[in-house]
Design a binder for these strands. Structure first.
Lengths: 315, 315
DNA sequence: CGGAGTTGAGTTACCGGTAACGTAGGACTA
DNA sequence: TAGTCCTACGTTACCGGTAACTCAACTCCG
């Protein structure tokens, strides 16, 4: 018991005893069993479960980096969960992670299975839903309005005089953020009297090469598309390379728009039309709010990090 | 006790009892406390600690993805540790993670502090050191010989007739893999009678933009460099864009070589001179070997995944 | 039909911390 | 000097699973 007090620097022991205890700790190479502490006190571990759809999508690795940096500086650890965009996978992962008594959870996306929601509410631990802003979150939400960002892009492209629109993304269910962007884009086009002639959802990761061959597919099925909005910048860059290879001029022959402002944009000779989003900030803010709740303080239930449309030279 | 047996499907109970127990589980929304199980049996959790230098470096996210996919399919979870290339950070993280009784550890790099090594040996759990192959690992090693890959690139470039060589990477200590590549490259150049006139280690992540401005810095300090070897493909692509912006012709005016074959390479109109490495495979193999040891089987102590030099069109 | 084996279920103790409480002995006060 | 308080340290019990054991009841067989 005295040793326990010394190690926790709880006070109630003499300097002489402290020295004696620390000497024994050194001699035995003693490492405390944190599992026992958690068990005894019905406490939480220092783990924070973080679910992201996949690591192949660069935007999520940036979010994850923001989260982990912040967590580490407050002596917490990230437990990774790749859900592969499957709500069932997420539910399984939530159940497993909860049985290990995490201090909190950060989930990407606002859609969960009913049982997942039930588990989360029952666990009664701090929770942040990130990425797609949820105005009535289970606990907290950090992100941006993806529908609006798609809508703004649609409106912007209409203002540039385009009439026949395309979209290329990767396959995903009805509940995810990229679909919200597509829906916003489609709505803006409809409202503005344009036509979304082709939309393509590839069964792939949203990277450079899917952007390349997705553009090829889209243009071969509808050569009259005037502008294409991509799921993210990397896909858009893939499209730019396809166009260069085919001598299709940008923006004279076709307009290209990305989303997310990814690092590749910084070295291009032209400015890619895109939507700037601070991915790292989403992660940091999510972790900050979570840590506030974990330490018993209050935190904003809904934090909108916003977005900024970058006009660029590719439309 | 009977309930415990039912939930573990251990046998030794009647069907009638099983139904009764499961009904209570349902009624109470009972979730087992895995912490108690670990505590009681002095067992391990299902966590596997995975340390990587940083998430801003794309090669490591691919390795991490390979690891996590494999771990998840065997009901294990990744606990992330970003060490920021600091051995002291790694030591702290190892100490913290070990106190949570992980089933195993995967560490990026072969260099650790003496105390870290002591902790790892004391913990007596399966351990894989990845990335830079370690012929005498603490437990197991999965990766490739980075020195050799640098050496081969140096020799290849010499065979192309180059005489004045440059290198651009990001800052890192003497112990890491990129430094091994640089050392191998330098050795090959020395052996072949060439000259490594400039080497640049930026204090940044090895991404597109650092490749861009690193090339600018290198060429302004030594305009006579004939070929530059970059820490990875993304930096090399940054260099290609810098050269395009400056009307420097590749490979006529300067040669560019990358490393790692990253996704961007798949959409370029030319073939980038690089070294192909299967990052995902490293992660998968590391996880596979770890899982073998965790389940009590034996696994290869040293697994070399190798590399392949891609001649390309940029030299 | 008696003894041995089997089956389903219950009992006890333990893992390693720590909250809550107990207590010896010294200091301080009326 | 007796009563009170404080400090430093010790003792007990508990968290929730499960290994190891006990035991009643039932089965099976010579």
């Amino acid at each position: 018991m005295t040793a326990s007090r010394v190690l926790r620097e709880e006070g109630g022991y003499s300097e002489k005893t402290r020295v004696k205890v620390m000497a024994e700790v050194e001699r035995l190479g003693y490492l405390p069993n944190r599992i026992a502490t958690v068990f005894a006190g019905d406490k939480s571990t220092t783990f924070v479960g973080v679910s992201i759809p996949d690591l192949g999508n660069e935007v999520f690795t940036h979010v994850l980096e923001g989260i982990d940096r912040k967590l580490v500086s407050f002596n917490h650890q990230t437990v990774l969960g790749m859900t592969q965009h499957e709500l069932g996978e997420e539910e399984n992962w939530i159940e497993t992670v909860l049985s290990w008594k995490p201090a909190g959870l950060i989930l990407t996306g606002r859609a969960h299975t009913p049982r997942a929601v039930q588990l989360l509410q029952g666990a009664n631990i701090p929770l942040v839903e990130i990425w797609d802003l949820n105005s009535s979150p289970i606990d907290m939400s950090v992100g941006l309005n993806h529908f609006d960002s798609g809508y703004d892009m649609g409106r912007f492209l209409l203002s540039k005089g385009y009439a026949r629109f395309g979209y290329v993304g990767t396959s995903h269910d009805a509940a995810n953020a990229a679909t919200s962007r597509l829906n916003g884009y489609a709505k803006a086009i409809e409202d503005g009297g344009g036509k979304l002639t082709r939309q393509l959802c590839l069964n792939d990761i949203p990277g450079f090469y899917p952007g390349f061959y997705g553009t090829e597919q889209l243009l071969s099925s509808d050569p009259n598309v005037e502008v294409i909005f991509f799921q993210n910048d990397n896909m858009a860059i893939g499209a730019v390379h396809f166009c260069q290879a085919q001598n299709i001029r940008i923006p004279q022959d076709i307009g290209i728009a990305g989303w997310g402002e990814l690092p590749i944009a910084s070295v291009l000779p032209y400015r890619l039309t895109t939507v700037q989003v601070n991915h790292l900030r989403i992660g940091q803010l999510a972790a900050e709010n979570l840590l506030l709740k974990i330490s018993g303080d209050t935190a904003k239930a809904v934090s909108d990090v916003g977005f900024r449309l970058v006009p660029g030279d590719t439309v």
